[in-house]
Simulated scan of single mutants.
Amino acid sequence: MLLPPSETKADGGKGAPLDLDALSFPELNPVRAKLADALVELAGDVPASLAALGISARQADEVTRNAQLWTSPTMPALRRYTGVLYDALDVKSFTRAGLAKAQQRLAVTSSLFGVVAATDPIPAYRLSGGNTVPALGTVRGLWKPVLEPVLRDVEGLLVDLRSGTYAAFAKLRSDAVTVRVVTEDANGNRTTVSHFNKAYKGKLAAVLATSRSEPSTVDQLVRVISKAGLTVERTGEHALELLTD
């Protein structure tokens, strides 16, 4: 499963400082290094950083995070990212067996790292998918040429839970399964929901990450999700709709 990141990140960590060689997908390391170095340099100019990152002076601590990218402690990616989706995912509640499965099944799209596996040790940082880094260009433009080939090589059933911003980083294989969170009114009309979107994707990710089953087809995927109590329907060859309660 490919998750979106979050703007908010947990502080601190107990891991050693960032080591790109400790991350999954080493093919991405040249761009990772380029971006990290650029963010550290940019952090030397706080007003320029605030403008480039699209944040206010009240969020200047985010610039400090970027200044310390190479020296601050790290923690596993699934614990670093916070917010609605990750609250619903609730990694802390996983059993040891469930966590082991999640470590193999979950990955997170990242503006700074391209994509990271669940347990990859990363520092806190600030960089959004829509940002432009001075001298390097747009984040999306930097990642698209290198990320698409990497993600095309991912084996097995691929479930895409990315938001639109991060879906633009890389086009996935044609057989990747997309999920739309919808609500249904009394007349049976369905509309995409924004308020519950992240929460339901987090619930879905938790179900699939910890399931004892290893679905290899879309039909098997639907059965696993339904058995867990979520309402899901297949709306296309590789498309699902997840209904809110």
Score class of each variant (00 low, 15 high):
L3Y: 02
S6C: 00
E7W: 01
K9A: 00
K9Q: 05
L18K: 12
L18S: 10
D21S: 15
A22Y: 14
A22V: 14
F25L: 14
F25D: 15
P26H: 08
P26Y: 10
E27W: 04
L28W: 15
N29G: 13
N29F: 04
V31Q: 15
L35T: 14
A36P: 11
D37T: 15
D37S: 15
V40L: 12
V40T: 15
V40R: 14
L42H: 06
L42M: 10
G44M: 04
A48W: 08
S49L: 01
G54R: 03
I55Y: 01
S56R: 01
A57Q: 09
Q59G: 00
A67Y: 02
Q68V: 00
Q68W: 00
L69W: 05
W70I: 07
T71G: 07
T71Y: 10
S72H: 06
P73Y: 08
T74A: 13
M75R: 15
P76D: 13
A77C: 10
L78Q: 11
T82I: 12
Y86P: 05
D87K: 15
D87M: 13
A88Y: 11
K92H: 13
S93M: 05
T95K: 11
R96I: 07
A97Y: 06
G98D: 10
A100H: 08
K101A: 14
R105H: 14
R105T: 12
V108Y: 14
V108M: 13
T109E: 10
G114I: 13
V116G: 07
V116F: 10
I122C: 01
I122K: 04
A124W: 01
R126N: 03
G130R: 09
N131R: 02
V133A: 01
P134M: 03
T138G: 10
T138R: 09
R140C: 02
R140K: 15
W143C: 00
V146I: 00
L147R: 02
E148Y: 00
P149A: 03
P149F: 03
R152E: 04
G156H: 02
L157Y: 03
V159T: 06
L161Y: 10
R162F: 03
G164D: 13
T165I: 08
Y166S: 07
A167C: 01
F169E: 08
K171F: 00
L172A: 11
V177C: 09
V177F: 08
V179I: 11
D185V: 11
G188A: 04
S194F: 01
N197R: 12
K198W: 04
Y200T: 02
Y200N: 03
K201G: 07
G202M: 06
L204M: 09
V207T: 14
L208M: 12
L208G: 09
A209M: 05
S211D: 12
S211G: 07
S213I: 00
V218R: 03
D219T: 05
D219E: 11
R223L: 06
V224M: 07
K227D: 14
G229W: 04
G229R: 05
G229I: 06
L230N: 06
T231I: 09
V232Q: 07
T235Y: 02
T235A: 02
T235N: 01
T235K: 04
A239N: 06
L240T: 08
L240E: 09
E241N: 13
L242H: 10
L243V: 12
L243Y: 13
D245A: 14
D245I: 07
